[in-house]
Write a protein that binds this DNA or RNA. Structure first.
Length: 292
DNA sequence: CCAATTGTTATTTA
DNA sequence: ATAAATAACAATTG
């Protein structure tokens, strides 16, 4: 479920625990979500530590605790976080619970594609600092996007948008939303985009990130009651899975197909595959100089 | 029983 | 050798 904005939504849920001490930690040792985690260290360090603050980057969260302790959470496909009352009794997929005096901070993940990381040290861990610069940061320029698309010239643009090393936080629905707004067919080879299309793509990447964050994760202190509470019907979001779903702009039927390993949805009326009468997916490979 | 799922990574193919 | 495609991971739901 969670992409950029959903991850921020869930992080904000745990904000009520900022400034409060962790009294006890409950974890499902041996479960897949702890595959890259030293649970012994985590169980030793977190009880008694105070949750100081937290941040989000891409699809990851970092929680900072007193005593130089850092907890990383990735929600995978089915992860979520909740806040429960002190007397809450945990269920099967509650793999990590931080019990505080007034509440329990719960991490739940049935499919366990997500993961928990723990680090003890003065500085932020490298698994955090090495995350690519955010799409909404100044580092995300048209040139950076153009260079990346050139290096992935033969891959469908939809698959390229899912690459976290350049489009951190973008997932399946955001990629579809971006391409739909930019009027670019998901199957277009990344290298076939014109410079005008790359500019549009870059702009819509930023716009969708900003809109999604504001709409799904709320602004400032405000947190919507649930993930989709304020997503407007004008977004592709509501229509891409709907039976007989129609493009909110053209009202024509939407198309669906697996592209880049993920089911993709687009509006054939706005997003054309052919460019100047030729199908770029059938184009022959062109020799190009190695980029440095 | 079959197919599907808003993610990532290891392995295979080209 | 590298880029792209595919399988695998696990659980649940329709």
């Amino acid at each position: 479920m969670p992409e950029l904005a959903e991850v921020e939504f869930f992080r904000k849920r745990w904000r009520v625990g900022h400034g409060a001490k962790v009294q006890a930690v409950r974890l499902h040792i041996g479960k897949k979500v702890f595959r890259n985690c030293d649970t012994t260290l985590l169980a030793k360090k977190l009880p008694g530590a105070t949750l100081l603050d937290s941040e989000t980057a891409a699809k990851q969260m970092l929680f900072h605790f007193s005593g130089n302790n850092w907890l990383g959470i990735h929600l995978g496909m089915s992860g979520e976080m909740r806040v429960e009352p002190p007397d809450y009794v945990s269920t099967k997929h509650d793999h990590l619970i931080l019990a505080q005096k007034s509440r329990q901070l719960v991490f739940n993940d049935p499919r366990m594609f997500g993961g928990i990381l723990f680090h003890h040290g003065e500085k932020q861990p490298t698994w955090w600092t090495k995350i690519a610069p955010a799409i909404l940061s100044p580092a995300f320029t048209v040139e950076v996007v153009a260079t990346f698309l050139r290096r992935r010239a033969r891959a469908p643009i939809k698959a390229v948008l899912l690459m976290q090393e350049r489009f951190p936080g973008i997932g399946n629905w955001m990629a579809d939303e971006i391409l739909w707004r930019a009027a670019i067919h998901p199957k277009r080879p990344a290298g076939s985009l014109t410079s005008a299309e790359i500019k549009t793509l870059h702009r819509e990447c930023r716009k969708v990130c900003r809109l999604a964050l504001n709409t799904i994760a709320g602004q400032g202190r405000y947190l919507p009651p649930d993930l989709n509470a304020h997503i407007p019907q004008t977004w592709l979001f509501w229509h891409r899975w709907a039976d007989g779903g129609r493009c909110p702009r053209t009202k024509k039927t939407l198309e669906r197909e697996v592209i880049g390993g993920r089911t993709s949805c687009w509006s054939p009326a706005r997003q054309k595959l052919t460019v100047g009468g030729v199908n770029p997916t059938k184009a022959k490979r062109v020799q190009r100089p190695r980029s440095t």
